[in-house]
Nucleic acid binder design. Structure first.
Length: 476
DNA sequence: AAAAAAC
């Protein structure tokens, strides 16, 4: 396995990576960086959480000319949060250099953005709407762009986005390098991709054999009814005690309503969707990243790209309608070699969608059923309606005394009651010399909800023993 | 079918 230097990344950048806890290139970085440095167009497909962002950022940053103060590279992302995240990542790596990076997205003051643009920027990272806004005003000049990246490329080239993306591309030189990155690339989108690239190298990283999502993500489907759905979710939060969890809903209104219900029950929860002000959205993301919130109730705005350390669980409160959505949603956990769990609630009307998802990922997801009395029982196989295996599952939802105190789950209130699974986590943590029970400071100070596991996820915390694929980075 | 993305 080559190191970054051998891939063509120069010493100062290797040092900057090291400062950010990144030492060993991931497979997608190993495969794409030499091609990108050589100026090739690339269509890259690699699973969620395997280091795609660094793969395109490094060659871009290294080849920017800071002495020329105009945009030389442009990265387009499908959501504002993702644009901001990529910007922060780029700024971390470029710290101490002359390189000026600007995020250009909607919901923030245009005038302020304008002044920053006038200051001269080398790298622009933005969302399509606001980029076009600036282009029409004549306040953004992209004629000097040598490299274009479409992050989450399949979404950017999809209906609803394509027109705006195309409009931005019109403002770029025809002679340029174009890079398309995503975890998913449906065939029809891939055909489209050839219109925007020239002699593109196709890079598909198969970290594992068959199932499309990462194996490090434990997937589960829990059969519920619309009536028991919310209770089932709460039971499972109390049972699995996520450090951080993202709960996906179908609509903005449903996300908002569910968040209100979780707040009512005493959880450290908040909502994220497009009906909120951009200031609120950024505040919520910040608090979630700091683990001041345990639960993030979101629409698909949070499905793609967001990389939040400590997300141990993803809950699909509402079944996603497309396999791509499922893959990206559950990919918010189990990142950078860590472990994660994805629980999808399925009501009877979700049968068709679920079937298509399992077909798409070529994998029959383990099935359970939530019963009226709060128990979670095993179901024999996909589609099986009655076949119980071995009766009650040993992980009794909620545990003793749940509900006794007016609804709020008190599982693990004293840190004593743990499932076998959590005991494993405790043992794993103590192997790594960490205080699993007391948790980190983050865990201990995370709001009044008591259902948080004290064990931050393994894999990125602390240097040394646990150098994961990203080299055991210590923070972001 | 919904969400995202400009004002």
């Amino acid at each position: 396995m080559p190191n970054f230097l051998e891939l063509g990344i120069e010493e100062p950048w290797v040092a900057a990576l090291k400062e950010n806890g990144i030492a060993v290139p991931t497979p997608v970085q190993t495969e794409t960086i030499p091609l990108l440095l050589a100026g090739r167009d690339v269509i890259a497909r690699a699973k969620t959480g395997t280091g795609k962002t660094i793969a395109f950022l490094l060659p871009i940053l290294q080849r920017l000319d800071p002495s020329r103060s105009y945009p030389q590279a442009l990265i387009i992302a499908p959501t504002r949060e993702l644009a901001l995240q990529i910007t922060e990542e780029a700024r971390k790596i470029a710290r101490g250099t002359e390189i000026r990076i600007l995020a250009v997205y909607g919901g923030q003051d245009v005038e302020k953005q304008l002044r920053k643009l006038e200051g001269g920027r080398h790298l622009i990272i933005g969302t399509p709407g606001r980029l076009n806004d600036h282009l029409r005003r004549g306040t953004l000049e992209l004629g000097g762009v040598k490299t274009l990246v479409l992050d989450e490329a399949d979404q950017m080239l999809h209906m609803g986005f394509l027109d705006e993306v195309e409009a931005v591309i019109q403002a770029l030189p025809y002679q340029r390098q174009t890079l398309l990155f995503s975890a998913t690339m449906p065939a029809e989108v891939k055909r489209l991709a050839s219109f925007y690239t020239r002699d593109a190298e196709d890079v598909t990283i198969k970290v594992e054999q068959s199932p499309v999502p990462l194996k490090s993500i434990k997937q589960l489907v829990v059969e519920v009814t619309d009536r028991t759905k919310q209770q089932a979710l709460v039971s499972m939060i109390d049972m699995y005690r996520p450090y951080l969890a993202i709960i996906f809903c179908r609509t903005k209104r449903r996300a908002s309503a569910l968040n209100a219900a979780l707040l009512e029950r005493g959880y450290a929860s908040d909502e994220l969707h497009g009906d909120l002000s951009q200031a609120k959205r950024e505040q919520v993301m910040k608090r979630f990243r700091e683990a001041k919130l345990q639960l993030l109730v979101a629409t698909d705005v949070a499905a793609r790209g967001l990389d939040v350390e400590g997300v141990t669980h993803v809950f699909n409160y509402d079944m996603p309608h497309e396999v791509e959505s499922y893959i990206h949603r559950i990919g918010r956990t189990g990142r950078a070699g860590g472990k994660g769990m994805a629980v999808t609630l399925a009501s009877p009307k979700d049968r068709g969608d679920l079937q298509r998802i399992e077909q798409g990922i070529q994998y029959a997801i383990e099935r359970r059923r939530y019963e009226q009395d709060g128990a979670i029982v095993e179901v024999r196989g996909p589609g099986a309606s009655g076949g119980k295996e071995a009766g009650r599952h040993k992980e009794q939802a909620g545990g003793p005394g749940r509900k006794a105190s007016g609804g709020r789950g008190n599982a693990g209130r004293d840190g004593q009651r743990r499932s076998g699974r959590e005991d494993k986590a405790v043992r794993a943590a103590s192997r790594n010399g960490k205080d699993a029970r007391g948790g980190s400071k983050r865990g201990a100070s995370g709001g009044r909800n008591q259902s948080r596991g004290g064990t931050p996820p393994q894999g990125r915390r602390g240097r040394g023993t646990d150098a994961g694929r990203r080299g055991g980075r210590s923070g972001r």
